[in-house]
Design a protein around this nucleic acid. Structure first.
Lengths: 105, 105
DNA sequence: ATTGTATATCGTAAATATACGATCATATAC
DNA sequence: GTATATGATCGTATATTTACGATATACAAT
């Protein structure tokens, strides 16, 4: 493509699309579920649960962090990730708005 | 990448990720909103409302149709698209399940 | 200081997505 | 029949995503 036309849409639609994009890989959905179910949220534990290399998981974590869906806390040489409920709640609200608009559900 | 690892996740996560992927472009979000607000749902009307060429819009419609989020009905030389509420309701339900899992919201 | 452990980043290859113009197929109108 | 209109598909260029191994960084322990 010559260049992306995404910027020609509304800010709201772009943000929702961006959130959807972060959720558009099963690894990232899995990671979000894991972060909420595990006692520990170290990267190593996440890597162990996924069929992906450490570097690939790190990339997925970066994407989740970029959209503020998760937060990382440095703990010595380790990093502990956790869900950012605030952003997720906002995402849920906006998705609800979209669905109520387009299909009354 | 050598090849995608998406198939190594659960069917549920893959389906949700696929739905999210369809929603991951502002043009497709805009199209869904338009289909519900316009009297007519002809392709031409949709093209008029988007900053994209006819062929690009057709590609986006194909994606929405692939996941069964919309349905097309042939009307002479025209095609009328409409929302498939059933699939959207299922998507909403699965997204709700995900959000309640990961952030109690 | 050295060694080990945990994670991020870099470089890179292949897959997929985005976008367009051109063309094709089909239905209507003449 | 031919022309016109609508929308899908093809071909193609570029951008982005996905994935990995290798390397770098940062801290901890010895």
């Amino acid at each position: 493509m010559a260049f992306s036309k995404k910027s020609e849409f509304t800010k709201e639609d772009i943000w929702l699309a961006d959130i959807a994009k972060v959720l558009s890989h099963p690894a990232r959905i899995r990671i979000l579920k894991l972060l909420n179910s595990m006692d520990s949220c170290m990267v190593g534990n996440i890597v162990d649960q996924l069929p992906l290399s450490q570097s690939t998981v790190s990339q997925h974590l970066k994407e989740l962090k970029r959209l503020d869906l998760i937060e990382g806390e440095i703990d010595g040489p380790k990093v502990c990730y956790c869900i950012n409920s605030k952003t997720l709640a906002r995402a849920k609200k906006e998705l609800d708005k979209l669905f109520s608009l387009i299909c009354n559900c």
